[in-house]
Design a protein around this nucleic acid. Structure first.
Lengths: 269, 269
DNA sequence: GTAATAGGTG
DNA sequence: CACCTATTAC
């Protein structure tokens, strides 16, 4: 496997923030960028801008106005699957192969406000997605091969992945049914949570800060919603640079009109 | 009458373009600025920004989301009338006194697309407004005194106030019923059209270029929709600096996210 | 083309 | 708080 740097970023409209993607690419120089919430159709994707910044290859799974994921790359992309996990024709997932590595790019449903499936169908949909996701990972895990799974999984699984474990236990993204469901899905495939392989608890890790906190850095009410997982075959490649190889670009949260998520990168091999 | 510089500008949202107003004020240093299409309520008017740029006095006649006029000044303002010409409670007009001079600030209805009162109620509304406007001016003209009337009158009255007289004769803003109605209203009060006092035809004068022309300067399909009129008592004061005292700031049309109208200034006295 | 509104989503 | 979609208006 060739060495490469990969990035994942919930961009919250790729058309609106294409200049921020270019700025980030110039700094981090990733070989592969996985984006979520691109909020556009395939034909609206700013392909030329990506080509100009050195990413002539891309695969886009989009829908009108909401959700959508895209993977862009310096080297050619083979498409393996599109939305196999998504019900209702939503554009939340695809699987591609780049340089012999399988990349799974996800945008898991946010789940609404009320953590009760009886009264909140969005939460029910999230848990349903999580079940399908786990089943898909188990199947995929058995197939073996080098796999990188990234995306906005909309769940902060561990106690120190949120600013207050206690206050968020009943807040969607950190309820036990979600955090346990996510960990179960991951372990069913045997994948490794790279951030926590490199940065043990109780150190806090966040990748998202709500737009609703006006001074995000001061209040620092973050959550780790964006993840990079790897198959066991990539354990050495993913950790060989230690925590220096894993970067959360929180400076991007201070840019003009930022996304509420920041990019995360990993040097592989 | 103290010497002063006055400005008129259809700003197309004063909240969105308050920084452009500051930039303009810094260049042109007007003592009085009359704005149209402020598109906000009185309580949303960026009063502090105007105070910071040296205009602690202002009078705002606003409504939610559309229309609205504001007059800001370095010296105190007496309010004489609000919307006396406007039917249907629209915020399109006010009259104030500053330094002994009466300022009338108007935003005349655009009138829609089809120049036929039978099928286009907006055009009927515009012509109705024009009638009321003429009657009001005649009354006001008889009262005498120093009067400055400014605003986006949404009519280009003369042949050389549009890029093509022939092609615009059936386009609202330059139809004969409008151009004749506007000239009649003006002459009923005996007011002078300052631009044409200083710059005779056939020289073209434009203050507005549609957003729909992508290269506005190259295609130059402009219209003179923004006007400065004065009472006969101010004829000498309005023309004493010659055409150097009258400026159309067309450079503002090239600023980032510009208004489709540019500011116009006059040195008075 | 540009900006306002309102309603839906995160 | 900020994005999308419509709609209306100029």
């Amino acid at each position: 496997m060739a060495a490469l740097t990969l990035a994942t970023w919930n961009i919250n409209s790729v058309r609106l923030r294409i200049d921020q993607v270019a700025r980030f690419a110039d700094m981090a120089k990733p070989d592969v960028i996985c984006l979520q919430e691109i909020k556009c159709m395939e034909d609206q994707f700013p392909a030329k801008a990506f080509k100009d910044m050195g990413y002539p290859y891309f695969h886009v799974t989009g829908q009108k106005g909401m959700h959508g994921v895209a993977t862009v790359s310096r080297s050619p992309i083979d498409v393996l699957e599109d939305c196999s996990v998504c019900p209702k024709g939503e554009a939340r997932h695809h699987v591609v192969r780049i340089e012999g590595v399988e990349f799974q790019n996800y945008y898991i449903p946010a789940g609404g406000d009320e953590p009760d499936v009886e009264i909140n169908p969005r939460f029910a949909h999230k848990l349903d997605f999580l079940d399908r996701f786990g089943a898909y990972l188990e199947k995929r895990g058995k197939a073996g091969g080098d796999v990188v799974l990234v995306g906005d999984l909309n769940i902060a699984p561990r106690e120190h992945d949120v600013w207050s474990h206690k206050q968020l236990l009943k807040v969607i993204s950190h309820t036990p049914v979600e955090t346990e469901g996510l960990e179960l899905a991951r372990t069913r495939a045997g994948y490794l949570d790279v951030a926590r392989e490199l940065i043990a608890e109780p150190e806090k890790i966040y990748t998202w800060w709500s737009y609703r906190n006006r001074d995000w850095r001061k209040s620092n009410r973050g959550r780790r919603l964006d993840h990079i997982w790897v198959s066991p075959s990539l354990q050495a490649a993913a950790t060989t640079h230690g925590r220096e190889g894993f970067t959360i670009w929180d400076e991007a949260r201070d840019w003009e009109k930022p996304s509420d998520h920041v990019p995360v990168t990993l040097k592989l091999g």
